[in-house]
Amino acid sequence: MSLPKPAPSLSGVCVLNPRPARQAAALSQALISAGANVLALPLLEIVPLALDATAKHCLMDLDRYQTVVFVSANAARLGLEAVADYWPQWPVGVSVVAVGPATQSLLNDAGLNAIAPEQEDSEGMLALPALSHVAGHRVLLFRGDAGRELLSDTLRARGAHVDVLPLYTRRLPEATDAIWRNQSQRPDVVLLSSSLIWQHWQQVAGDFAIKPVLIAVSQRLASHVRAAGATRVLCSHGATPDAWLQALQQWQNTAVEFRASSEC
């Protein structure tokens, strides 16, 4: 994916990149190319889980599902590895849904014709035709061991039989507190790509957590951030580097006098 044209307006702006260490490089490079200073502070660590007997049974029965849903890029990466141990080729007739473009790209690179919504969240996936009429269908969700239940609950309410295959757990990296304490520079902007990253940011930064400009990945998350007392909150329309840059440029263009009542 080509990066947008560098934006001189981000020169000197310190942006906190909270992505896991192994996944932070693309976003950091995009921010640097746009003129920003980057503070890499991983607020999330992805820890793979061993597959239990139920998970292995779901994988062996993969061809019995009408649709498989990958809720994150990590779910795609780990899910493809798990499937490869049981299926040398993806079973015919099983549709694939991805939460967003990064996840979709990983799946398509593996030869799958994944579809993804424009809105990169559970609500966006639930609006897709592929997940709208699922009565009697078997659906398998590749995801972490915790998170929102909206997707699974709604699909079951629509008449689908839903199995959940947990592939990883998410936690705050042990080194993050020390990195933050030893960091002399403080960010002007913090990018928030999930509710858990927001929780971890509050845990690490304390009272400072609501002082920078906070860019949330969705309206729902932005509402939670405002409820915590933050007054300078924007939304990004997705979690790709391009989407974050567009949100940052919007802030730079309009936030001379940022209003606490600004909406996404």
Rank of each mutant, 00 (worst) to 15 (best):
A127W: 06
T169S: 15
A127G: 00
V134Q: 04
V83P: 04
H137W: 14
R143L: 12
A175R: 13
L191N: 04
F142W: 07
A146E: 13
V139I: 15
V94M: 08
V92S: 12
V94A: 02
A114R: 02
L155S: 02
L141R: 02
W87Q: 02
P173F: 00
V92Q: 14
S194Q: 00
E149D: 15
Q119R: 15
R143F: 12
D145H: 06
S95W: 11
T176M: 03
R186T: 11
V99H: 05
I115E: 15
A146F: 01
D121I: 02
D109W: 08
R156L: 02
S193N: 03
S72T: 10
C58Q: 13
S72M: 10
D153L: 09
D61M: 09
D177K: 09
A55L: 05
T54E: 12
D188C: 08
A102F: 00
L49Y: 12
E174W: 07
V83C: 08
F142A: 05
A50C: 09
N182G: 13
V162E: 01
A82I: 00
T176Y: 01
I115F: 11
L80D: 02
L112I: 03
N182R: 13
D52F: 05
L80M: 13
D52M: 03
N74W: 06
L62D: 06
A127T: 10
V190T: 04
N108H: 11
E118S: 14
T176V: 13
V68M: 03
R77A: 14
H57L: 08
Q183D: 09
L141G: 03
D109I: 00
T103Y: 09
E118A: 13
R156W: 02
V69K: 07
T103W: 10
D85I: 07
S194C: 00
V68G: 03
A73M: 12
G144K: 04
L59Y: 11
R170G: 08
G79K: 10
P129C: 05
A157R: 12
V71Y: 10
S184V: 14
N113C: 11
R148H: 11
L80N: 06
A146V: 05
W180F: 09
D85L: 15
W87N: 01
F70C: 00
L191E: 03
I179V: 15
L62V: 07
V96P: 09
L80Q: 10
L49I: 12
L126N: 06
A157S: 13
L165V: 12
V139K: 04
P173C: 03
G111C: 01
